[in-house]
Design a protein around this nucleic acid. Structure first.
Lengths: 328, 328
DNA sequence: ATATATTATGTAACCGATAACATATTTCGA
DNA sequence: TCGAAATATGTTATCGGTTACATAATATAT
């Protein structure tokens, strides 16, 4: 591999001048610049970012920790993060933590050995202090870890309330909330929003808890719907859960949205593919991912951070699993 | 950050001995090992993989180039690759090429600057010579680039024939093949398999071409089905396309599988979520991803490669979009 | 007991960049 | 015309490891 020395020799200059030219700092004469450019072209020189990282003690790698990239929510974030990172000259390392604290810690440890420049974290099982003690820039995406950690998230409570209210104004009377795993702040907040909406109406809805796994969720939902056939409106804590509900509705031959209305949360692309297409409380996932990446890179590069917390509002996306005509 | 020198000093040994201990090569006495272990624990020392990479001219990063991680096919491969890589101590960099030669080249260039240890490529738009001229280990996943490049792929022709035949034995008579983009070998092969099956029956099926984009595909399918209402069996070049077909079938109020049977190809998780669940020609995506990662790492580490081409057979996964009862 | 092999450890060059510091050359104001 | 400021370039230590080579201590064979 040709290195900076080769370029220097070829251009009849010292490595320092070549380095200055490459980093565009310090003085380099017009003539020298041309000779360097010529040499670089001639030798097809590519600076080693490893060597650069070692000497600068700073890499251009950012770590993205997700629970599981197979969960359709995360590829949308990952894509945005990667696009943004790429455009700033950074590279994204993908990590699947499976929501296991142990595994996540191992990842963080391994990544910090690589001088990872920063971390985007979409999990929050660990004690906030763990994240805060890592001396690498970090951004929490989709989950709030601690006020002290820059965050990009959605107002889940507000969104859930919005979705639930829509269900109610659309004539649903017997509501079921399918909530995500206990202890997950996102799921907790969405439940809160749901309950706020039902409380305002003086309702007493059913709430069931399930993991985000499709099959597990389907089982729980099937049991619940069989036990409570009167349910005519479901608010699900995620689109995946909503789709599981839709799947079971078909299985039980309940017509959607005529007999049973469903509202999801997230706004993943999948929601448009199922039939009927899913009405959901949508987040702008691309915007979230891109914003998180930008915030992280600003931190890494020591720029003034304009905003450390970006809290977005979710928008109701009306599609086919709710009765449009009845809307207010 | 504490470095190897600190450890050496603490253990009252030279850096060479510590390095030998870390790499488990060369001689290190029992007593010294213990002192080193003690020092490492005491100082919480983590070797810098950047420095290691520089001196070894070898990193532990592997690049995974996919067209778009949002396409639900790729997260399943990515997950497997990442799991395998992780277990061998490697780290995966994610790259979205958008099937653009230009972008892919830029990625490869940037990655090779980082001493990327190897590449897993799931695209094949470029001239094989490009891939072969990169002097990094490479594995083609899901797509055959060249016989000289280690490959993990599925026998698409055979699989497509299998799926199509199933459609035929199940009573479908007017077949439609929704094929993926022209020039994509995978799509070409699947079409070939489809045509082999219909030719054997002396049929003259309809074939339409579309990109893998859901909306584009849905539009094409809708137009086709309106033009040819007699179609009672669809073989789709991918599960996403099959799901688009299912979506349109619902929209046009064609009952699936009674009036219209659909068979997809890929075996992505999504196929189980739609209603009815998708009958498909399934690949073991996890196995493929894991195998590709293993093959790559074996190459990187200079191990004897047992097998440079892994060609798997696809399996028919019968679910709800075909008429089970009519099966042979 | 001595030669030789094996085990154990240290010194220092090297990987490919950056950057502090030194030095040389040019520009320009007074 | 002289000296300071601005411009241009070079030398070399450094980042944190690995490893070739040298050397020392021990074990083993004859």
């Amino acid at each position: 591999m040709v290195n900076i020395k080769d370029v220097a020799k070829n251009a009849n200059l010292s490595v320092a001048t070549v380095s200055r030219y490459l980093n565009k700092n310090g003085y380099v004469s017009k003539k020298s610049s041309e000779r360097i450019e010529q040499a670089i072209r001639e030798l097809d020189y590519k600076p080693s970012s490893i060597a650069r990282s070692l000497s600068k003690k700073q890499s251009n790698i950012i770590g993205l920790i997700v629970p599981d990239i197979k969960n359709p929510y995360f590829p949308e974030l990952a894509r945005a993060v990667e696009d943004m990172a790429w455009s700033y000259g950074y590279t994204v390392v993908l990590c699947n933590s499976d929501e296991q604290t142990e595994k996540e810690l191992l990842y963080i440890e391994r990544l910090s050995q690589t001088y990872v420049a920063g971390l985007i974290v979409t999990t929050s099982l660990m004690d906030p202090s763990v994240y805060m003690s890592i001396n690498t820039p970090i951004v929490a995406l989709d989950r709030i870890i601690d006020v002290a950690i820059p965050t990009v998230a959605t107002d889940n409570r507000k969104g859930a309330k919005l979705g639930t209210k829509y269900l109610l104004t659309n004539g649903a009377e017997n509501l079921l909330c399918i909530r995500g795993p206990q202890g997950l702040k996102t799921a907790d907040d969405r439940l809160t929003g749901f309950l706020e909406a039902t409380d305002e109406q003086g309702l007493d809805p059913i709430v069931v808890t399930t993991s985000f796994d499709f099959k597990d969720a389907a089982k729980v939902i099937e049991q619940t719907l069989m036990l409570h056939p009167q349910v005519d409106g479901i608010f699900a804590s995620s689109d995946t859960l909503a789709i599981a509900a839709l799947h079971i509705a078909h299985k039980l031959e309940k017509r959607v949205p005529e007999e049973l209305q469903i509202v999801g949360f997230d706004g993943i692309a999948l929601g448009e593919m199922v039939s009927p297409a899913l009405t959901t409380v949508g987040q702008d996932l691309y915007k979230m991912g891109a914003a998180a990446a930008t915030m992280l890179i600003e931190q890494i590069e020591g720029k003034e951070i304009k905003q450390t917390v970006l809290n977005l509002d979710a928008q109701l996306i009306v599609r086919g699993t709710t009765r449009k005509e009845a809307a207010k």
